[in-house]
């Protein structure tokens, strides 16, 4: 197998063989991508709600605090006649008495059988109506992935303007505590258009998603 040193040397020598005026100009300019201006919280929330309505085809549900949010989610589950759920996130702890009515998944296999995943998101992106999930001990990746329906709950204080602002946030996090193993930006239900370009929703991931905004 090729040695790392040899591989890198080959690259260095290739780079030295050729150059363009454009490269010189771009490197000398020192220009780096900058995130756009920040909007106020209410503007971000309004934009987020518009984008979610357009891309997820659902209305954002507002809740004043986490207690209200949990109760709202519980009534959604009850209305649908759901019996098994999977939960992920600090404010959606399975140990809360509220979830006593449901069979709550404890491992991957039961998560796979759960009818609905309820997941606390870490950030929202106003520009695209996306929710951002940072994997951690109490937030397994599979809860937002395996059940056919997913309800995301997100604190308004996690609302960011755009992907570029999320990257700045992650860079700061990286400098402080290292990168999380996985961050997923989710925008709407799983979809495909691989057969005759006909849009079909819910192929591998959840086919239905809802967003509850808290605060």
């Amino acid at each position: 197998m090729m040695e790392e040193r040899q591989f890198l040397q080959k690259m260095t020598s290739a780079l030295s063989r050729y150059s363009t005026a454009e490269e010189a100009r771009v490197l000398a300019s020192g220009v780096r991508p900058q995130p756009g201006p920040r909007a106020g919280l209410e503007d971000k929330i309004a934009r987020f709600a518009d984008e979610v309505a357009e891309l997820h085809k659902v209305e954002v549900i507002r809740a004043g605090n986490w207690d209200q949010a949990r109760r709202h989610i519980a009534s959604m589950l009850q209305e649908r006649g759901v019996s098994s759920i999977a939960l992920a996130g600090e404010d959606l702890k399975p140990s809360l008495p509220l979830w006593g009515k449901w069979k709550v998944a404890g491992d991957r296999d039961s998560t796979e059988r759960a009818e609905v995943g309820v997941v606390q998101a870490d950030y929202g992106l106003a520009e695209t109506g996306s929710v951002v999930l940072v994997a951690s001990k109490d937030k397994p990746r599979s809860v937002s992935l395996l059940p056919p329906v997913c309800i995301f709950a997100l604190s308004v204080f996690g609302m960011l303007d755009s992907m570029a602002h999320l990257m700045k946030e992650l860079e700061a996090r990286h400098a402080k505590e290292g990168m999380p193993a996985t961050v997923n930006v989710v925008t709407g239900p799983s979809r495909t258009a691989d057969i005759e370009l006909s849009l079909t929703v819910g192929v591998h991931g959840p086919g239905e998603v809802h967003v509850v905004l808290v605060g």
């Binding site: 695209t128 992907m163 996985t182």
Partner: peptide, 24 residues
Amino acid sequence: ATGQKITVYFSIISGPRRPGETDG
């Protein structure tokens, strides 16, 4: 590519699962 503003999933992956995580 597809005319989408953003794809449904954008995954940012930095190595294997961290200690204590149950998947990945």
